[in-house]
Amino acid sequence: MSSARSRNRSRPSLAAGLSLGPAWVIVVAIYIGTAIWTVAMSLTTSRLLPTAQFAGLSQYRRLFTTPRWMQSLENLVLFGVVFIVVALVLGFLLAVALDRKIRFEGAIRTIYLYPYALSFIVTGVVWKWMLDPTMGIQKTMHDLGWTSFRMDWVVDMHMAIYALILAAVWQATGLVMALMLAGLRGVDGDLWKAIEVDGIPTWRAYVAIILPILKPIVVTATVLLGVAVVKAYDLVVALTGGGPGYATDMPAKFIMDFLFQRANIGLASAAATVILLISVLAILPWIYVTYLRAPRR
């Protein structure tokens, strides 16, 4: 990182600067340009088509008095917190299990991770079928004689969000497992010897000694899952469609609906701006620490 090192590494090259032209254009025109446009639109009265009629913060006032938006924010928090916590804990446990020198480790690892290769649409459609109250798991249990068994989450106002969480956990926990397992494999063998000499029970060693070592990985995994949470759209569309009612609506879906179906660009832009603010505040410290302060591996 020191300027002396970078100076003697290479003389400034026109070609090097030019080669980054496309990336600069994408960042400036596509990321920043469109973001500014959206923020600007949130301050106008735009409905079906963008207009430049200034409306102050009235779209924001309207947004935060729209029950559907408030519900989608609430859903985002509940979905985000439960999904991330469950995926982290389960992912860690799976990684520990695979780290215990078991047989068939490769095959089991493959099984844990394959859902991550599938799209959210595929994930949503499969779980919709599994959770179908008339034909899915519930029916199977009823046929087996367990008639009080209930798994009708998808049609239940209060449980539908947990159907979403279940499917998301199924899809993404393998990612956490893979990241954590890589971390566990990096743990120094001498440390394990010391743990053994001290007679510390294995489970305690994992929780009290190993887990703190994995902290950077936990942070990375949390950020990656968090990004997926804020972007959650495909899974909602495929699994619940945001319903029943707006019980599983998410900000991303709210924005898409108001942009392309409800033709209310001003309101949707205000919602997108709020999401932008939340995302930037949440990730800025992490980007700074991860990418700018320690570029070496």
């Binding site: 959206t38 900000p251 898409m256 942009l259 995302s279 990730i283």
Partner: peptide, 13 residues
């Protein structure tokens, strides 16, 4: 930053 911002911000423009 662009990688982490929801696409909903860019999509309409």
């Amino acid at each position: 930053v662009g990688a982490f911002i929801p696409y909903q911000l860019f999509i309409y423009p």
